[in-house]
Design a protein around this nucleic acid. Structure first.
Ligand SMILES: [Mn+2]
Ligand SMILES: [Mn+2]
Ligand SMILES: [Zn+2]
Ligand SMILES: [Zn+2]
Lengths: 143, 143
DNA sequence: TGACAGATGCAAATCATTCGCAATAGCATC
DNA sequence: GATGCTATTGCGAATGATTTGCATCTGTCA
């Protein structure tokens, strides 16, 4: 992918601009996150980071994830498996369909659903700050 | 509410039919669940049950909740506060809007959204087994 | 009423995530 | 390039919700 380097640079700039130190460990984690095109959990990211630089600890992975989430650079998801999963936040908003058999996560976006959600909230007197839409399903048997 | 007793009876019948012992503790927990019209977590249910019968332990609340969930009698929700919340499963399917300021949980149902979800899944080659739609919002300021 | 498998309370174990703390290392300055 | 201050790190211990092992109790059915 060509976007990985830009993505990494964006992370880097953001931290630098905020006066946050760019440590070796953070660089590695930023790189791993920039390269990720899936929805890894903290442990998976720790493994990927460790492979590049064994000095990265799980604690620092957690701390960096929290930092980036607070800064809006990444998103945290809570699918039904107990762990938090993360993904870059520089992509268009989308929701997820989780394959119950394989665990595969499929992304989709429905303008209509997004609009309906806003309408429903408005009718109830609310503004939506964020939302969560997850479909859990099984591959349709082809008979 | 008039439905509470029927609801309690339904729980009772279900366990009995499955050859599961109707212990004092289970009766109390079933009653508390039958009376609940909110989305309490395990600890809240434990408090309500304890008030009726101090011999009910938190462990048994957890065990009973798991039992009822497995039997499809109650539903487990995982809103963004870390704990599981429960509700009777004998009501029409609905989704939730959570007030970020008060924690209030508002129920709603949109036929259109339900339909759209099924369509999207179908297009992706999937059948939806279950889904989760949660809106997190703030009361619209009235100016 | 008796027997016995299933259920309970309690404490200890899990599991993901966070935290305290002493040691380390960015980075601005000289 | 060396220095100093402070943020950051790794480690292990703490957390908080939930589960589990085990000795003891109790429904249920004969
Ligand atoms: Mn995604
Ligand atoms: Mn509900
Ligand atoms: Zn959406
Ligand atoms: Zn729904």
């Amino acid at each position: 992918m060509s976007g990985e380097i830009e993505r990494y640079e964006r992370f880097r700039q953001d931290l630098k601009a905020a006066g946050i130190r760019l440590t070796e460990q953070r660089k590695v984690i930023l790189r791993v996150l920039a390269e990720a095109d899936d929805h890894p959990d903290a442990h998976a990211l720790f493994l990927r980071a460790s492979a590049i630089d064994a000095s990265v600890s799980l604690s620092t992975v957690y701390r960096t994830l929290k930092l980036l989430e607070e800064r809006g650079a990444i998103q945290r998801h809570a699918f039904d498996d107990g762990r938090s999963r993360f993904e870059n936040n520089d992509v268009e908003h989308h929701d997820h369909l989780i394959d119950l058999d394989t665990g595969a996560v499929i992304e989709f976006r429905s303008e209509k659903i997004e609009r309906l959600q806003a309408e429903i909230a408005a009718e109830l007197g609310y503004d939506i700050i964020r939302h969560k839409l997850e479909l859990y399903g099984r591959r349709r048997s082809k008979n």
